[in-house]
Simulated scan of single mutants.
Amino acid sequence: MVGSLVVGALWAMLPAYVPNNAAVIFGGGRPIDGGRTWGGRRLLGDGKTWRGTLAGTLAGTLLALVLNRAAPVVEGLVGFVLPTFPLAVGVALAFGAMLGDIGASFVKRRTGRERGAAFPGLDQLDFVVGALGLAALVAPAWFAATFPPLALVVVLAATPVLHLVTNGIAYLLRLKDEPW
């Protein structure tokens, strides 16, 4: 029971976990804020680009479709049913993750933090809030069935650890300028 809860919750979050990594790898180009400022500070900064947002959303959505295909095989290995993703949910998880990260960038700029500056808590959970929020809006029944309260606890507890580990690896591979 605990194993299926943990694996199912993390499986359901995979389309939200991938977009920000894809945005780092495939991003760049024109910033979303177009260089605009508010209160003397950039709205978002150069790190939030249209290409990165599109790449992240596509990567997460494609992963959701791949997971749908892989689910029957993986279910045979783990011995329990895994969540699958209607297309709208795959897009919502991926785009919601990007929106959460964009929102965090806005908050960071308003609080005087520069691009790449640490903001503990926000850095690790911004994309989770965006992804889960948009998925709940787009598909409330899917969301309720996939993320009962204990599954949400698993996601909120495991994500900061996974986030720090994956960002540390990206930093060591020189894909990121900071390890958070």
Rank of each mutant, 00 (worst) to 15 (best):
T61W: 15
D33L: 11
A59Y: 07
L162Y: 05
F80H: 14
V89D: 09
G112L: 06
G47L: 04
M13D: 09
L10H: 01
G121Q: 02
T37L: 06
T53Y: 08
L67F: 04
V153A: 14
G130V: 12
G79Y: 11
L44Y: 09
V91P: 05
V91F: 12
A131D: 14
L5M: 14
G39I: 11
P83A: 08
G35K: 07
R174I: 12
S4H: 05
I102D: 03
I102M: 15
L152W: 09
G116L: 05
V7H: 07
L93Y: 03
L58M: 13
R30K: 08
R110E: 03
V154F: 08
S105N: 11
D126F: 12
P148N: 03
D177L: 05
T159D: 10
A158F: 15
L172Q: 15
M13H: 05
A158S: 14
D33H: 10
D123H: 10
T53E: 09
L87R: 01
L137P: 00
T53S: 15
V128F: 10
I25W: 14
L152F: 08
V73Y: 14
L150T: 07
L122D: 01
G8L: 03
G76R: 02
F95T: 01
R174M: 11
I32R: 06
A136Q: 14
Y171H: 15
V161W: 13
A157R: 07
V153K: 02
H163T: 07
A104Q: 00
F80K: 10
A16M: 10
G8K: 02
R113T: 03
R109E: 09
A70P: 01
G112D: 00
S105H: 09
D123V: 06
A97E: 07
V129H: 10
A145H: 14
L137D: 02
F95Y: 09
N167R: 04
G52M: 06
A158E: 08
A92R: 07
T61C: 07
D123C: 07
D46V: 11
I169H: 09
A16T: 14
V153R: 02
Y17G: 09
A92Y: 12
A23E: 13
N68K: 00
F119T: 06
P179M: 05
G56S: 11
I25T: 08
A158L: 10
A145S: 15
A55Y: 12
S4K: 11
G29E: 07
G133L: 08
D46S: 15
I102P: 09
G27F: 14
A145L: 13
T49N: 08
V74K: 00
M98A: 10
R115T: 04
L67W: 00
L14H: 02
A92C: 12
A9E: 04
K108F: 05
I32Q: 07
F26G: 01
G121K: 05
L156E: 01
L63K: 04
D46R: 14
L87S: 02
N20F: 12
R115G: 00
V165Y: 12
R115A: 07
